[in-house]
Write a protein that binds this DNA or RNA. Sequence first.
DNA 1: AGTGCGATTGACT
DNA 2: GTCAATCGCACTA
Length: 175
Amino acid sequence: MVVRELPAGRVSGRIVETEAYPLGDAACHAFRGPTARNASLFLERGHAYVYFVYGSSFMLNVSSERPGVGAGVLLRALEPLEGQSLMQRFRKTRRALDLARGPGRLAAALRIDRRQDGLDLCAPGPLWLAAGAAGPVGESVRIGLTREAQRVLRFFERGNPHVSGPRSLSPTSSS
DNA sequence: AGTGCGATTGACT
DNA sequence: GTCAATCGCACTA
């Protein structure tokens, strides 16, 4: 699970959907080497990489390799646990299923922006990762990409309604 | 210095 | 279901 500590209180949720952007993946922002924007992807695994897309959305990633190697995991959806009233305020909606279903919504629900880029998520602080119960895991192709779109690198909890994307990509059972 | 576009979302038919 | 908004950044010149 991911925990956000704010002056107004704590916000947290179970991570129910992720996508991997491994070493050598042309869709990974680190693919063409380090820049000012993607520097956090090259930090020791467990650091936050936050970036801004489409002029409107922040994306929260966790770096996943050794220092100097650029790769990470995008957090795509949460099942809200603590601080749902704060999430409702940040997201400007009351619907529980709309609070953190989708990567941009997730970042907004946690009040994430570039100021959290580079934070160590494995240490106490304003944003950190905690152990949590795991459920049945499903996998699919990634969502929304133009490059390397076919790779099966999206992982989600089967049957969880807080998972984003079309139903066809989030089957309830394997078959 | 100028240009094209993206790991999306929310509004609308 | 479709589609435009919006802006930082990488890339070309």
